[in-house]
């Protein structure tokens, strides 16, 4: 900031911007190498850096979502992640979004473990007008998934969203439980779940990579949802995750309300690391239209 040349001091500051954004040492070093290679060439003054990195990092992390053929009906989305990352809230926001598109949505309360998890999802169902399939606290989560699958079929639902219990990636019995849910859904709806979204808390640091790696060992993750980006955290760990695992981010969470879900936009994400909030960037875009 305020500097007119790209010198060592400037580069140190830039490095710190990335480290502070939870980008992590390895990915930060790669980004810094990329910058250093281009200093004096396409990068002449500090003002060149942000557009350059918006483009370069943007390209690294914007993977195309899986080619959408005729969407399956019901389209089944399994929502997974560690404890407290924002799965249930994201499920509720997704229901709201799909219902807004005129779709019929069924929710499966497959977190039968955490206190009042079922009641929490039920409140989201009420709030959004989705139909909910639930069992008793302590019931077998794959039995819930099974019933929800049947219900989605018989009701001709467009979308089935399955909310699962928070589980740490280090617990193999809980990872097995997820694979089981995956299998149960696939039995009645071939190809389901069509999407499995890992919800990552945007305030998480370097552990996010371990989470993504471990979940991927047990289930086929097709996308990430990065939550809590309305906080002061930037969620930078996702850069290395996308690069290593080749899975795209589908949505970001930017609050606790029904509308606080946005499609992931790689370039605004990079801008936010430089200090432009995603919602501000979005407002700016809207004004330009």
């Amino acid at each position: 900031p305020g500097k007119t040349t790209i010198d060592d001091e400037y580069l140190d500051e830039l490095e710190e911007v990335f480290l502070s954004a939870d980008v992590g040492v390895k990915t930060t070093m790669e980004i810094m190498d990329l910058v250093r290679e281009n200093v004096g060439r396409s990068l002449k003054v500090p003002g060149d850096i942000q557009p350059f990195l918006r483009r370069e990092i943007g390209r690294m992390i914007s993977l195309p979502a899986k080619a959408e053929t005729e969407p399956a009906k019901p389209h089944v989305i399994l929502v997974i992640g560690v404890n407290g990352s924002g799965k249930t809230t994201t499920t509720g926001k997704l229901a709201h979004k799909f219902i807004g598109q005129g779709k019929k949505v069924v929710l499966a309360a497959a977190d039968t473990f955490r206190a009042a998890a079922i009641e929490q999802l039920a409140m989201w169902a009420e709030r959004t007008g989705a139909h909910i399939v639930k069992h008793q606290h302590g019931a077998d989560p794959s039995a819930v998934a099974y019933d929800a699958t049947k219900a989605a079929l018989s009701r001709h639902a467009d979308v089935l969203l399955i909310d699962t219990a928070g589980r740490l990636h280090t617990k193999s019995n809980l990872m097995d439980e997820l694979s089981k849910i995956e299998r149960v859904i696939g039995r009645d709806i071939p190809g389901a779940p069509h999407e499995t979204w890992l919800v990552l808390d945007g305030t998480t640091g370097q552990n996010a990579l371990n989470q993504a790696r471990q979940f991927l060992q047990s289930v086929k993750i097709t996308g990430f949802v990065l939550t809590k980006l309305d906080s002061t955290s930037k969620g930078g760990a996702i850069i290395g995750i996308i690069r290593e695992l080749g899975v795209p981010v589908r949505y970001i969470g930017i609050g606790e309300g029904v509308e606080d879900l946005q499609e992931f936009d790689a370039e605004s994400f990079v801008d936010a690391i430089f200090g432009v909030s995603p919602s501000a960037a979005c407002e700016k875009e809207e004004k330009h239209v």
């Binding site: 502070s20 939870d22 740490l168 617990k171 305030t203 640091g205 552990n207 002061t232 955290s233």
Partner: peptide, 30 residues
């Protein structure tokens, strides 16, 4: 599992409330 912002967050809470301590959760993670 919180990242770099943990301390800024904690500092803000401390400035407003004068915290007496911290509890760290999810230590059963890696």
């Amino acid at each position: 599992m919180t990242g770099q912002e943990a301390v800024n967050v904690a500092q803000s809470f401390d400035e407003r409330l004068d915290l007496s301590g911290v509890i760290l959760t999810k230590m059963d993670s890696d």
